[in-house]
Write a protein that binds this DNA or RNA. Structure first.
Ligand SMILES: [Mn+2]
Ligand SMILES: [Mn+2]
Ligand SMILES: [Mn+2]
Ligand SMILES: [Mn+2]
Lengths: 220, 220
DNA sequence: TATTATTTTTAGACAAGTCTAAAAATATAT
DNA sequence: ATATATTTTTAGACTTGTCTAAAAATAATA
């Protein structure tokens, strides 16, 4: 078995991995996990001994098949518990992440699958992130953000790239929740801020900082 | 905040405390928590520094008000999650304890109270143990066991004193689940085994080992 | 009461995970 | 290509919780 700490490192490495980067850097992991680079090096060695990552000094780190499986199963747990907390216990989308950070470490295929069934196999968590299926497949939606839209284009909010309480609270205050319909009225060249209409009713002015973190599915 | 380890010690001390014993012994705690007496002494000192227990060398240990509050809140969590796992995720009563041992440490009054509400404020967990209310009050049922009944007396199963998988499995195989109606047909003097009728249908022979761990509410 | 047995505590060591400070490797700039 | 800056690793220390072996205190027995 692996400690919570080990699991959190695997999750961080998974999050930082992408086809673009060949090997996740020590510093990036340290930043993600809020610790020192020296601590990361120590842990990487341990994970490497356990064959959960592939590691060559100074060359960055890759998850092995086994390491990736564990990371994905934790993410599946995390997102399912977030759905539970919102759908069944009536928490708001900005209140559930920290609980899920703890619940995700209770790792049992049986428990996870039953929770999944109880929730009626949700496809996305309360922030629009895709929930890996029981075989570990993740169906990411393509990465279009509100900031990619031009004047007069329309879309539906399908997710957020930033999960902070303050961001989520702000979104709610302007009705930019999952499923909200957006029409772009105007984009300011200078700072890329935009004027939008939400659900055909309210008009709001949105900074680039806000629009670039809002995942959108284009309509029309 | 307290570590899982500290919380488990508090729970153990609570479990071992009773009006009868003045001070829980180091050895008893070691036995309960499956560790060495020397480790217990170390931890007791730490809990004492944190004012969660009252401790005088060689004199055993008492929970303080604060320590007791924490212990009770963990037990409340544990039992509520067990209800969730059985009622909502359709686990059996012998499968839920180990999960609850982990879930109980996610300590948030808000989460616990919402879970309680979602489960419609259950009074007992799947093993018949009382669930502390949100103010920490526990309403224990009086301690009558099947072994206290005499020939021809009747009762209803309200709980179990032993929680092992093997015991719970056995009980289920002879229909001795919570709510089962029992009539004692005969008690053998030699080994205190008894012949009983369950739910007016099945007859079973029950050893003393079994009957003394089955909590009963007398009827008639 | 003196002796023996049991319980509890202390002393010292170890593994996990973290940190700071310094050394080594790699990347960037002149 | 050399010097400088940045990243990464090592060395050594600290904390938490555990252990074994031995000492000290308490309880049981003769
Ligand atoms: Mn989250
Ligand atoms: Mn989420
Ligand atoms: Mn239990
Ligand atoms: Mn129980």
């Amino acid at each position: 078995m692996n400690s919570f700490t080990e699991e959190n490192y695997l999750k961080a490495i998974f999050k930082l991995s992408s086809p673009k980067v060949d090997g996740v850097s020590t510093n990036a992991i340290a930043e993600e996990i809020q610790t020192k680079a020296s601590s990361v090096t120590d842990m990487i060695k341990k994970l490497s001994d356990k064959k959960l990552v592939k590691y060559k000094k100074y060359q960055g780190v890759h998850l092995t098949k086994k390491g990736k499986e564990i990371a994905v199963s934790i993410i599946r747990n995390h997102r399912l518990w977030e759905v539970f907390l919102v759908e069944k216990l009536a928490f708001k989308w900005d209140e559930v992440h920290d609980f899920a950070e703890e619940l995700e470490h209770i790792r049992s295929k049986e428990l996870t699958n039953r929770l999944d069934a109880f929730l009626e196999f949700p496809k996305h968590d309360p922030h629009g992130d895709p929930i890996p299926d029981k075989d570990g497949n993740i169906y990411n939606h393509k990465d279009i953000t509100l900031s990619d839209l031009k004047s007069a284009e329309k879309g539906i909010v399908v997710g957020v790239k930033e999960h902070s309480k303050s961001y989520l609270n702000y979104l709610e205050s302007v009705n930019l929740v999952l499923g909200a319909e957006i029409k772009v009225n105007d984009v300011i060249d200078f700072d890329h801020s935009m004027s939008i209409t939400v659900n055909k009713k309210k008009t709001a002015n949105i900074s680039h900082q806000v629009s670039k973190n809002l995942l959108i599915k284009k309509t029309d």
